[in-house]
Amino acid sequence: MNTLSQAWDWLTTSANWSGEGGVWNRLVEHLFLTVVCLLLSCLVALPVALVLGHLGRGGALAVNISNVGRAVPTFAVLVLLLLSPIGSYGYWPTVIALVLFAVPPLLTNAYVGMRGVDQDVVRAARGMGMTGTQMLLRVELPLAMPLILTGVRIAAVQLVATATIAALAGGGGLGRIITAGFNLASTPQVVAGAVLVAAFALLVEAVFVGAERLAPSWGRRG
């Protein structure tokens, strides 16, 4: 309990929230890294999943290959990237490691969502003369949106939690608070940093849960 009270004291000390190493600045860095990695992951995974789900071919292989990445620890990937020539390019090793980590849930959920669309609806759309692109964008994508958003939510929350490894590569984010606590042998600061990461992850989870609740209405309009 003494550690928890000291962690609370650290969190309620205004000096710890201001300045370059303060909580607000680290939170902005963490948010920026999470958003960048999430956008890059979506650009990589979603087009592949949507096209393969629409065609109904090759999706299982792509999902299985992407899921292999889940068996490899993100920290191990980061270390290998840091030891490679890419390691000299600032944030890129961390970004690449996090993108590889976020691709599997995005690809899997989007593909499953596309394949789960009622085929009677697809056949009706085809009978109305819709082209493949029209069926993808106006029928299949809106109906698959709930599962796609679930994948995005899972990836976002995982990125928030895992982006703390950026501090190990000299990057910013809330992980710097935790590593600084270890360097200072300050357990309360380590606990405070962990609480901040957990609270941020819960906030991101709540935002995406709200978006998912709107997804069925998008599907009905589509």
Rank of each mutant, 00 (worst) to 15 (best):
R123K: 09
S5R: 14
V103C: 00
A60N: 13
L147F: 04
T108L: 09
A124C: 07
A125C: 15
A169S: 13
L33T: 14
E205Q: 14
A185H: 01
I178L: 07
L100E: 00
A201E: 03
E140N: 11
L184R: 02
G19C: 06
V23S: 00
R138N: 04
A45H: 01
G175T: 09
L31Q: 06
T3G: 02
G171E: 05
P146R: 01
A144Y: 01
Y91Q: 10
M1Y: 12
E205L: 15
S41W: 08
A97L: 11
L61D: 04
N67T: 06
A163V: 08
A166N: 05
S66P: 02
A7I: 08
M130S: 10
L33R: 02
R221N: 06
V195F: 12
I177S: 02
A163P: 06
L4G: 14
N109L: 06
D120F: 02
G219R: 04
A156N: 04
I154C: 00
V112F: 05
A215Q: 10
L33S: 03
T131Y: 03
R153I: 11
V122S: 12
D118T: 08
G116K: 01
Y89H: 09
G113L: 14
N67P: 05
T12R: 06
L214Q: 10
I177P: 00
T164A: 14
L39E: 02
L27A: 12
N16K: 06
V209R: 15
Q134G: 12
L141W: 10
P93V: 14
A161T: 13
L106P: 04
P73W: 08
Q134H: 13
T150V: 07
F101W: 03
A194G: 14
A7W: 03
V117M: 11
N25M: 02
D9F: 02
V157C: 10
L55R: 15
M145N: 01
A169G: 08
V48A: 11
L141P: 12
V44G: 02
A211Q: 03
L55W: 10
L168I: 08
V51T: 11
V160T: 13
A167N: 01
T34C: 14
T3N: 03
G222Y: 07
A215T: 11
G132F: 09
V28K: 12
L11C: 08
G151D: 01
G171F: 02
V72M: 08
L143W: 00
T164Q: 07
N109W: 05
G127F: 04
P216E: 00
P188A: 06
R57D: 12
I86P: 03
E212H: 02
V51G: 04
F200S: 07
L39Q: 05
